[in-house]
Design a protein around this nucleic acid. Sequence first.
DNA 1: CGGATGAATGATTGTCGTTCTCAGTATGGC
DNA 2: GCCATACTGAGAACGACAATCATTCATCCG
Lengths: 128, 128
Amino acid sequence: MRRNTWQREAVREALGNNEGFVSAQMLHSGLREAGSSIGLATVYRALADLGSAGEADSLQSDQGEVLYRACTPGQHHHHLICRSCGLTVEIEADAVEAWAHQVAADNGFTQPSHVVDVFGMCAKCSAD
Amino acid sequence: MRRNTWQREAVREALGNNEGFVSAQMLHSGLREAGSSIGLATVYRALADLGSAGEADSLQSDQGEVLYRACTPGQHHHHLICRSCGLTVEIEADAVEAWAHQVAADNGFTQPSHVVDVFGMCAKCSAD
DNA sequence: CGGATGAATGATTGTCGTTCTCAGTATGGC
DNA sequence: GCCATACTGAGAACGACAATCATTCATCCG
Ligand SMILES: [Mn+2]
Ligand SMILES: [Mn+2]
Ligand SMILES: [Zn+2]
Ligand SMILES: [Zn+2]
């Protein structure tokens, strides 16, 4: 059975305190600097669990690092992400969902899934 | 100045002979098995160059490996990729382009870019 | 409340894709 | 042909992440 540990809760909370996407290593060093004794492997495990439970979204940075973000559970959505500060806006777009299904079907593909992310410079970062 | 070597040409040709996305390591072992003495680092460098020259598209697999594919140059497009065999179809979708721009603008984001990939099981792999 | 069970932890080691190093090679301009 | 130097490639280094395993502690049960 799944046990409740302060480590899992610490990762969940740290994730919620971040506006944008963060890596396991970033979360770990942040927690350590705040005095926690949590281990890196535990942060990885907690993030993987949160991801598969639908409580966190993930994406890969250009450098191949996996980034996580607390996620409104239950609803399928995508993200608009600031390349400079990481500010992230959740996006719903039924039109894109339908388009992805249609494209797959038109080419004889079944069990379609898709990756859709929009990047840019947020208003604040654009002003700088 | 950029020099022309048989190694670069070998990578370009090997990439063109592949239907779907392939990794640097896959290309390297394929070339080696065909008798080439090309080095792994050179394959990585050639692929990076082809990518920045717009002659190859790249994406990251779920495992974080970077995959490359010869690309019809000049035109912006996306990909429909078979999760099983790697068969890839190039897709153009002005509607999605427009949507991405609109979403960014609506949220005050400038200089928008986007990542759009559709995955599925191709007709042949669906039958198996 | 104990005491037993085994899931969870974390320091460490291992893995693997990718990049770096650097001595040797070979391309392109002269 | 000669030279400057871009390029190559074997191997070492790097970095994110997974696996290991002795230890800890959350949960269950009496
Ligand atoms: Mn979607
Ligand atoms: Mn596009
Ligand atoms: Zn920003
Ligand atoms: Zn297929």
